[in-house]
Computed example of a mutant assay.
Amino acid sequence: MRHQRITPSSPLRPGNLLPARALVIAWCLMALIALLAWLLTIGQARDMGVEPGTMGMSLPIFLPLWLVMMIAMMLPSVAPVAITWVRGISRQSTGAARAGRIAQFTGGYLVAWTAFGLLVYAALTATGRLVDDHTGAARWIGAGAFLLAGLYQFGPLKHICLRHCRSPMGQLLRYASFRPWARDLRVGAHHGLFCVGCCWGLMLVLIPLGVMNIAAMAALAAVIFAEKLWRWGPRLSTAVGLAFVVLAALAPFQPWLLPGLEHSGAPMEPMG
């Protein structure tokens, strides 16, 4: 797919930018949706607590809950990209059409994270069974999850995907040459795959910390937001990687670091 120059007839020409009022409305709507998703997630977490594995959830129950979690955690960091894309392709569209395009982009983005949720469910199922059958396995599962997440923060794929998420304009210009059919949906899904590549390691630590651990989710959401939008995001990414490696070294000796692998009322014994 060749690079598209910005010309007077280009879908991303400056003249297509959203009016200031529409831009404010778009930001407020995205923030409201994220807030509602957080409220739903917190309410559900209070009822479920933190337990190993899938906590008895079947896949049809887990995936909608995972989707709400991703809306809460990821929407603040993807909102600038979605709005930037729609600002460029809107032309003279009505407010309803622009809202529809943002919804399609966001929907495609969430399709990528929902697909990743299938892998998360499989991982939770496997780790839950291991912890049930071998209580000592929790330490090594937790240490392995922290170590893998930490090492990934230094890997080349992380840097490629993070660079895309931090500076998506070049890719958005290429997206402008996509065929119009379901373009916004496909662009959102494509960007979502980059985001999964950037953040899957961070999500991995929810296995030892607890998939319904609100404090852990909030901390990860803040890290994801800062990595993508803060000036020192790449440095933060490195610092988080180092922190995970340290947690990997401590996990076998400090069971309190692994609430997501501990059954209620049955605390793990620390290694002697």
Score class of each variant (00 low, 15 high):
Thr41Leu: 12
Leu173Phe: 02
Gly49Ile: 04
Pro19Gly: 10
Arg183Asn: 02
Cys161Met: 10
Ala149Lys: 06
Val211Lys: 01
Phe225Leu: 14
Ala126Lys: 05
Leu209Asn: 07
Asn16Ile: 05
Ile83Trp: 04
Ser237Trp: 00
Trp85Ser: 06
Arg186Cys: 13
Phe244Trp: 13
Trp256Val: 12
Val196His: 10
Arg231Thr: 11
Phe194Lys: 04
Gln104Gly: 00
Ile89His: 10
Thr94Ile: 03
Ser237Lys: 03
Trp230Pro: 05
His159Cys: 00
Gln171Met: 14
Pro11Tyr: 02
Pro8Cys: 02
Pro76Ser: 05
Arg101Ala: 15
Pro19Asp: 10
Ile141Gln: 07
Arg91Pro: 01
Phe105Cys: 13
Ala215Trp: 14
Arg163Trp: 06
Ser93Arg: 15
Ala96Gln: 13
Ala45Tyr: 04
Gly107Tyr: 08
Thr84Lys: 06
Ala115Ser: 14
Ile83Phe: 05
Leu67Arg: 06
Leu261Glu: 10
Ile207Asn: 07
Leu162Met: 11
Leu40His: 03
Gly136Arg: 08
Met30Trp: 00
Val211Tyr: 15
Phe225Gly: 03
Leu18Gly: 05
Leu67Pro: 06
Lys228Pro: 05
Val78Cys: 01
Ala143Val: 00
Thr114Met: 13
Ala137Phe: 09
Ala137Thr: 13
Gly142Asn: 11
Gly233His: 06
Val240Met: 11
Ala219Asn: 08
Ala143Gln: 01
Leu40Gly: 08
Arg129Phe: 03
Cys28Thr: 14
Pro64Trp: 01
Leu67Ile: 15
Ala248Gly: 12
Gly265Arg: 10
Lys158Asp: 03
Gly197Asp: 02
Gly43Ser: 11
Leu206Gln: 02
